[in-house]
Nucleic acid binder design. Structure first.
Lengths: 117, 117
DNA sequence: CTGATGATTAACCATATGGTTAATTATTAG
DNA sequence: CTAATAATTAACCATATGGTTAATCATCAG
């Protein structure tokens, strides 16, 4: 059993990393297998430059979502699942209360606002 | 069956909204029931000012994560579960591939680097 | 060694973000 | 009407972000 607990700053970084379509596309691509930076660039949006992609990769790496491995002059990117699991854990925990409170929420709204709709 | 599909920009906004500890704290508080803006401020980090919190609330609202309801001069904030569900759906979908590829990934690592942890 | 390739780093720029204080809007109380 | 309260909006500021082009580093080919 892995401890998926991540500190607050870690969650900040993970969610921030996910808040960009290019980075999500990279993760989506990598979820189908590791890839070199060049391969990622070729499959990304056509206009993306190498430095831009490199920055995105460092954001993902800083969030712990991927790892780069040097293979000669090629850098192979692969996923790091723990960080995403941590974010998912936060969401699940939050949503647990969320869901169980939905009925009480409805009751409260009826009670407090007295026919709100 | 709710359609949890959200466009790319929507996911951007949801994840961006979650990438801040103050905003996550607000969601955590609201998951235990609705609250006025003033109540949220009182329970937030001590240094938080009303305008700062107001901005955070608009970010959360723009992401579809909460809704404000006017009750006289008080504004009651309550959660909007669909947006979070959409983000969770994206993560689950991504992680599905992720997990199923972990064994192949491990094989690759043994092949290339030998011993990853 | 020289040159080409994969990728990053450096320097720089425009815009977005998150915070502040002061002013404003809207509602309730006297 | 006037004052007080709840909250937002306005104006402004410092920093972060995401992008660019040019330069650099590291590796492979000849």
């Amino acid at each position: 059993m892995v401890n998926h607990q991540v500190d607050t700053a870690g969650l900040d970084r993970v969610f921030h990393a996910l808040a960009d379509p290019t980075r999500r596309a990279v993760l989506g691509r990598l979820s189908r297998g590791p890839a070199s930076v060049g391969a990622l660039q070729a499959e990304a949006a056509p206009g993306i430059t190498a430095p831009a992609l490199s920055k995105h990769l460092r954001v993902l790496e800083g969030a712990g979502l991927l790892r780069q491995e040097r293979r000669g002059r090629v850098r192979l990117c692969r996923l790091e699942p723990e960080a995403l699991a941590a974010a998912e854990a936060w969401m699940e925990e939050t949503r647990r209360f969320w869901s169980t409170r939905l009925d009480e929420l409805a009751a409260l709204l009826e009670d407090d606002t007295g026919g709100e709709r």
